[in-house]
Simulated scan of single mutants.
Amino acid sequence: MAAASSPAPSGPIPFKDVDDGSVPEHTPKDEFGDLVAALPLRQQSILELRLYQGFWLPEHWVPGTIVFQRRFAPRPDDVILASYPKCGTTWLKALAFATAARGAYPPAGAGHPLRRLNPHDCVPFIDEIFAGGEHAKLDLLPSPRLMNTHLPYTLLPEPVARGGGGCRVAYVCRDPKDMVVSLWHFLRRSKPDLSFADMFEPVCDGTAAAGPVWDHVLSYWRASVARPDRVLFLRYEDLLRDPAANVRKLAEFMGRPFSASEEDAGAVADVVELCSFDQMKGLEVNKPGSGTAGRYRAMPRDAFFRKGVAGDWANHMTPEMAARLDEIVREKLQGTGLHFA
């Protein structure tokens, strides 16, 4: 008699634990090379950018974005975590994974995946997956799946953007001044001579990678206003001020609210502690020399944990620079109901 088949595992589970190398790479650049070559080109720091559907995307993302838009099949319980670069992506990944997977992986447990893996190893980066032609890897993940993207809402696949099929999107934004500082420090790990002005100016004129930043933020803000059941809009500064309240909000949005017994047992506090900046930065897997995360532009894992604070922009830009960026953003957001303090 044949042995009974074991039940399929329930997600989310760490992406690195299912990415066994069995899916061959097929670079979509071969399929869409001519289309990409015809797009406006701009060099920014270590990246070559192409203007695609109103946004400056890293050139190697564009073919994958086209495939993502055309062929991604969302599952009803998918959750896509979205952000502009350096706006809380790593923290959101950790919080969402620890919250959604707490049944299989108690956050206080010594064997939790986030104690041995970087958050980017737990939640796959859709932009790189599709850029490498490896989207079949996403089929290996059991439901519910957690994934993340830096694409604006308007570039998401139509089934996701229209809110159909049950797929949810959680977005985190950040004061653009702190974002610029964080992005500058991050890119200097690959280009040490990158000046702050060379990072600041493209943000101000709307040509930074994944920019214009204000259009990126507004795409998710408007979607969250129109479909709050499908798009959750979070602020990095709010996460810092009250992480527990925002973990509860995220859990409710993902369809995994904390029960009264979990609350009494301190489950929310356990998630917050596991995913705290000091806790994650202090883990061996995230210390200098621990390896890299990312495929196309691999970065040291410790590069994702610098300060994790709000207001550090004051240590890097003049009052005139801060006032200039604030005024640009204020003008772009005028009348939308969204503002930064």
Rank of each mutant, 00 (worst) to 15 (best):
P192Y: 01
M199Q: 02
F305V: 04
G166C: 04
T149H: 06
G311L: 01
P76D: 07
N315C: 01
P106E: 06
A98Q: 02
W184Q: 15
P28F: 05
T27A: 03
C167A: 15
F277K: 00
A104S: 12
A100S: 03
E237G: 10
R75G: 09
W184D: 13
P58Y: 11
D229Q: 14
E273F: 00
L325F: 15
V225Q: 15
H150P: 07
V160K: 10
A269L: 05
T292Y: 11
P14M: 11
P124T: 04
P24S: 08
R42M: 07
L325S: 06
N315W: 01
E128W: 08
Y171E: 06
L117S: 06
L239Q: 08
P159D: 10
P157W: 10
A260K: 11
D121F: 02
E331I: 05
K191F: 01
G109E: 03
P14A: 07
D238A: 06
D19R: 00
A323S: 13
F305P: 04
A298N: 04
A2R: 04
D34Y: 00
A38V: 02
R115W: 05
A323P: 11
F233W: 11
E48L: 09
E237C: 04
S190H: 13
A310T: 06
R168P: 14
V231P: 10
D302V: 05
